[in-house]
Write a protein that binds this DNA or RNA. Structure first.
Lengths: 309, 309
DNA sequence: ACCCACTGTTGCGCATACCGCATCGATAAA
DNA sequence: TTTATCGATGCGGTATGCGCAACAGTGGGT
């Protein structure tokens, strides 16, 4: 038979307080409860732990050893439960998110900064990549959630619309179109168009937009990295179209951006989680922070807007 | 509210076995018991730990963390109890004994060797000193017990007679008395007597013996250490009288010993423990070994004899 | 010398925690 | 479709844990 946690805790309290009455007061239980618990412990261990002199109690040799062990066990339980409670409250642990580079670089940094300020013991892990890779991370469990565009729906994923991100025309600073307040896709189609690589979700949308505008615009050049596209635009090699959140990634070159209509094209960024799967508490806390920012209408770059359902 | 050890242990078993039924078989409890225990744990923690798919169970993120913590707590309890059981069975811990140098050097070494062979995880600590110091160690708790002569009885000490140790005459190898088989105290009184220091219990007995024999024998010389006395005897400066157990300590010199009568003088060596005080289990085990040696009549030096009550 | 205040122990009754049995609903395998 | 196996749950009996109250031993104060 093993000693119960209750018995060990009672014994530790009595031994430390050097008395049943004092220990009982501290533990908020009756003195008789402790008397019995310690008595039971002695019976279970088959040894006397305390020398009860009516005026005070003192430990036997076996009592000393038992105290050492009991303290370890009780402390292991106490600290373990504390640790667990913190985890369950989202105060410790890891948040693993997968996002598009634009979200990672533009939308998240301030979020993470705020989050880390509130929950310094939670590690944040960001895995950036393109849409397919990002969704894959969520599906295989590497990431707790994603913030990304979503092409095709999957019944293994659950979406929470987060933000609308409007495409804007990207032009060299001195380009004639830069004088306008608004530019159309038709306007862009008349210029050499600099596109991102075909695996990017942005590319899918620009292609569709040109088609919708009845224009054909085979890219004058393609680049995988948007900063590269930015560089090309700055060098005057052509124009491009990018979602508002991507604009800050275009680099330090002299590019400007203008509203882009006919049609107005938006991509939608969703929070994506695995369907029917509980999130780790820390991840829930992070998503709560995102929702909070949305509810408060926290500032976002021009062209982007929170989705309020 | 905290999770109980029972709940945590149940959860660990279920999580490891990846199933309630299998875990129940291992733990020798019914499946329903585990189902309830885990369910209770989830309720207490306020979070789902297991995804129950009718065919198998898998851990949620919170379940993983809970498993880590629960394993630590359960393991701390398991190993703590094991450690404690070993201590209580006298298989670990420390035996602290205080004894006269003669006992420490002559009687104990083989005992300790046997003891350590049987209980290798018990440390043995020997504190040797003269009777008063030895009894002091027991009284203040530094030593679990003593093996020593006892002058005055104390109600704070309890005695268990162990061995009788007869005084023998100690002579230079070439001394005329060495030709006899038996020597009397009167014979010794006619020679220069070499005594141990007045704080030794041996001295008290030699003084009393001379008085009883009607002889007066002021020491020709005194030394604190019996090996010194042995050296003096070997050098032919005189004779002495020592308990049989002390003889091996007289040193490598050319001394012989003979039976010493008129009167026969014995000192009694007792096991001495604090009255109304439980001994540490390992100490009890050591004393049991001593009793065992006595019961078996284990060999002792000529002149010494176990006391069998 | 007596009494009082304070200690831990113990008998008792109540609440509930715990357990196993039996059964149910769901689901994968045959 | 049937069957076997899984975990969940209703139920009743028992064990455990608790506080109250009465008790016994002891040291300090009068």
């Amino acid at each position: 038979m093993d000693a119960s946690l209750r018995q060990l805790a009672a014994y530790v309290a009595v031994a430390r307080a050097a008395g049943f009455t004092a220990a009982a007061a501290q533990m908020r239980v009756s003195q008789s409860t402790l008397s019995r618990a310690v008595s039971d412990l002695e019976r279970v261990l088959g040894v006397q732990l305390l020398e009860r002199d009516t005026r005070n109690v003192q430990l036997t040799a076996a009592g000393q050893e038992t105290l050492r062990v009991a303290e370890q066990i009780v402390e292991a339980h106490r600290s373990g439960m504390k640790q667990l409670r913190r985890y369950l409250l989202g105060e410790s642990g890891i948040v693993a998110m997968a996002t598009l580079p634009s979200v990672a670089a533009v939308l998240l940094p301030r979020m993470i900064s705020t989050f880390r300020g509130r929950r310094p013991d939670v590690s944040v892990r960001i895995m950036d990549g393109l849409e397919q890779a990002v969704l894959g991370k969520v599906l295989n469990g590497d990431a707790d959630f994603a913030v990304t565009t979503v092409g095709a729906a999957s019944d293994r994923l659950e979406h929470r619309p987060l933000i609308r991100d409007r495409f804007r025309a990207v032009l060299p600073e001195s380009h004639p179109l830069a004088d306008r307040e608004e530019v159309t896709w038709q306007d862009l189609a008349a210029e050499p168009f600099l596109a991102v690589g075909p695996e990017s979700s942005v590319r899918r949308l620009t292609d569709a937009a040109f088609e919708q505008a009845g224009a054909v615009a085979p890219p004058a050049a393609e680049a995988g990295n948007v900063a590269t596209v930015g560089g090309l635009v700055a060098a005057g090699l052509g124009v491009s179209a990018m979602p508002a959140l991507v604009l800050p990634l275009l680099g330090p070159g002299h590019v400007v951006h203008r509203e882009l209509v006919a049609p107005v094209v938006e991509r939608r960024l969703d929070i994506v989680v695995r369907a029917r799967r509980a999130l780790p508490p820390a991840a829930t806390a992070f998503l709560d922070l995102l929702q909070e920012a949305r509810a408060e209408g926290r500032e976002v770059p021009a062209g982007a807007a929170w989705i309020t359902d």
